[in-house]
Design a protein around this nucleic acid. Structure first.
Length: 637
RNA sequence: GGAUCCGUGGCUCAGCAUGGAUAGAGCGUCUGCCUUCGGAGCAGAAUGUCGUGGGUUCAAAUCCCUCCGGAUCCGCCA
């Protein structure tokens, strides 16, 4: 439709002014969706833009162009007529051929409707979740995971090969803190409740350990454990087993929400494979990095970021990569990791496939993990070597992520520099503070991912018990449906905000099932499914025959048409929110259609056929969108 | 001190990249709609100095600057 409008516009503008690249650009970006349907299906403000070139008033230009367009179109072309209102040119289209072609397209593309192949098979690594393996996911971690999961799905539908990594930092201070606590028997002071998830209990222990450490001021003992974890095989095995149990428990949570991974990357495996040493050799060869001989940073290895314009305004533009005690800093580690992801340094990790995961659509995905021992005869698979890397990390780490990115620039890794993306988002906040694993405040607010699931489940269960008395005899089916509604509600709630908005955690918002929510989208899809099931015997829509199209139907058709554009823009701007908003608008349009257009009792056979066809393509598009959002598709609810 | 982000009805948020017609939703409040494809829905009402003050422009919630309020960052923490 836009293509046709631009072509016609150029045709009528040409006699008035030469179309150079400047004018061409104006035309390309001038098509918009009018505020109300009375102004047509599309409009353009091109007359305003041309006013200064033609030295005429916008209204006059719009009037002339509109008249000229009307003289070359008729009721058989896609554009039926145009009007000029206050300087705008409004386009009215012929819905019958428009619908016919949209219908054929969506029917033909089916589950692929909305997709494109722009990625052309290129590969992206999306790293998300990546929590320390000492605690459960809290709602903020879940926001990270859901956003990352959604971006991965979006990239896939833009023709990219996607590899989802989850980094397990088992060599960090948080793990050492926990191990210190367990070795000193402090976990015995935290009673594990019946059926309590392991990671939840561990998170309590971890928080407890922090309190004791703060009282005793025994951090030097934790430092010693950090060293022992690296050098004492028994200590390492002890630590890794605990982390493994925690990760297994974390995965259970992720799967409840339809989140799956391709590769769990263990920090200890990375460390032992020599990635850091290789990175250091690479940096040492470059003049932008140096060992400091004097001054406050004497004995440290420094990244000379001050030579970049972007860091000139910093109080201290240079960044310490290796402390004077020889231990690399966190950001240096992240640099090594990024270099490894791009395959600039080689880690030679041993990997094994551990479990077959299923997401909400029952799609199978093998989960692989890096490992410290190889079982002979096991299948191997190589990871990495992407064209692009996207790290989903909170906004408070914007500066660190910039350092990582610009370090690539200092190393003259131009391609890797422009293909490093930090998907940044703000925190989910508790009423008066931020959630933190250390303070354990997620506990008192019931803000860990499993508790939020339970509370939402309870709300959904209450609702379905009222609405679906018939399901009392089928608790298994009811449980499946309630699980789906729960995941839908929470996932949608985490996606619907802009990544730049801090979400205030309030359980009544997360568990809401009405209005701008995930269940609302599911419900519209269920309505369509029900109609389709009842009319499964009607022969397929043919474009011949006459029928009237109502305004609600037109709106729905126009909404359906936008799907591919949204999928493209959402991926390009790293805004899953755009898909959520669009899916909500589409569901809303369908509900209005549903209220005003009876399908089963339509007045004529032809009308019935047309409406059924509209329901069919709505159902296809909505299911594709739900899949991108990771919302389960159900037949009833 | 410097940097980034945020400020939109009572509440929670979209819209800002690429300026454009009457600033959109949801929740809450109020009024209607179940002999009607499933009411987790629909129709309607009320509620707005788009933080403040300037500037640019034919046109500013959107771009630029000031100030006010909030968050985060600028570690040999992770």
């Amino acid at each position: 439709m836009e293509k046709t409008i631009k072509r016609v516009l150029k045709q009528v503008i040409k006699p008035h002014i030469a179309i150079d690249s400047n004018i061409e650009h104006l035309i390309e970006n001038s098509i918009e969706i009018p505020p109300t349907f009375e102004f047509g299906e599309r409009s353009t403000n091109i007359a305003f833009k041309l006013a200064s070139f033609l030295k005429k008033s916008p209204m006059k230009i719009a009037e002339e162009l509109s008249g000229e367009i009307n003289s070359i179109v008729d009721e058989k072309s896609l554009i039926v007529k145009t009007t000029s209102v206050k300087g705008y040119i409004n386009f009215f289209i012929n819905f019958t051929p428009f619908f016919n072609s949209l219908y054929s397209q969506i029917k033909k593309e089916g589950v692929n409707y909305g997709e494109n192949q722009r990625g052309n098979g290129k590969k992206i690594i999306v790293e998300h979740t990546s929590i320390n393996p000492v605690k459960p996911l809290h709602i903020g971690n879940l926001r990270n995971a859901v956003l990352g999961d959604c971006i991965a799905r979006l990239y896939k539908r833009n023709g990219w090969e996607v590899e989802i990594q989850n980094l397990i930092d088992d060599f960090g201070r948080q793990v050492a803190t926990l191990i210190w606590g367990i070795l000193n028997g402090h976990h015995l002071g935290v009673i594990r409740e019946i059926n309590e998830k392991y990671d939840v209990w561990l998170g309590k222990v971890y928080s407890h350990c922090n309190n004791i450490l703060a009282e005793q001021d025994s951090w030097n003992e934790v430092d010693k454990i950090m060293i022992d974890m690296r050098h004492d095989p028994h200590m390492y095995r002890f630590m890794r087993n605990i982390c493994q149990a925690c990760v297994d428990s974390n995965l259970e949570t992720a799967w409840r929400y339809g989140i799956t991974y391709d590769y769990l990357v263990w920090e200890s495996d990375i460390s032992r494979s020599g990635v850091w040493e290789e990175t250091l050799r690479l940096l040492e060869k470059n003049s932008s990095f140096r060992w400091e001989k004097e001054g406050p940073n004497a004995g440290c290895f420094i990244a000379n970021l001050g030579e970049l314009a972007e860091f000139q305004d910093k109080k201290n533009p240079d960044k310490v990569f290796i402390r004077s005690n020889g231990i690399p800093t966190y950001v240096a580690h992240d640099v090594a990791l990024q270099l490894w992801k791009f395959g600039i340094v080689k880690a030679n990790l041993t990997s094994r496939s551990v479990v077959k995961q299923k997401n909400e659509a029952e799609e199978t995905r093998d989960l692989w993990t890096s490992t410290d021992f190889h079982v002979s005869g096991e299948a191997e698979k190589s990871f990495g070597k992407p064209d692009r890397v996207c790290n989903v990390i909170g906004m408070e780490q914007n500066y660190e992520q910039e350092i990582v990115r610009y370090t690539l620039k200092l190393l003259s890794l131009k391609k890797e520099f422009v293909n490093s993306f930090h998907m940044s988002y703000k925190h989910v906040s508790a009423p008066h503070a931020r959630f933190s694993g250390r303070s354990g405040n997620w506990l008192e607010e019931r803000a860990w991912a499993d508790a939020v699931f339970e509370d939402t489940y309870a709300a959904a269960f209450k609702a379905i018990s009222k609405k679906r008395l018939d399901l009392e005899d089928d608790p298994i089916k009811r449980n499946l449906i309630v699980n789906s509604i729960t995941a839908a509600a929470i996932r949608y709630w985490l996606i619907k905000f802009s990544t730049e908005t801090e979400i205030k955690f309030r359980i009544e918002d997360a568990t809401s099932l009405e209005g701008d929510t995930g269940p609302f989208l599911m419900y519209s899809s269920v309505r369509a499914t029900k109609i389709l099931a009842k009319l499964s015997k009607i022969k397929t829509f043919s474009k011949h025959g006459k029928y009237e199209i109502t305004q609600q139907e037109k709106t729905l058709i126009l909404q359906l048409y936008r799907c591919p554009e949204i999928v493209k823009n959402a991926a390009d701007s790293f805004q899953p929110l755009m898909v959520a908003k669009y899916a909500y608008d589409l569901a809303s349009s369908f509900n209005r259609f549903y209220e005003t257009s009876r399908v089963i009792n339509a007045k004529t056979a032809k009308l019935k056929q047309f409406r059924l066809a509209l329901v069919q393509i709505f159902s296809i598009a909505m299911q594709n969108l739900l899949h991108i959002l990771g919302i389960p598709i159900v037949d009833e609810m």
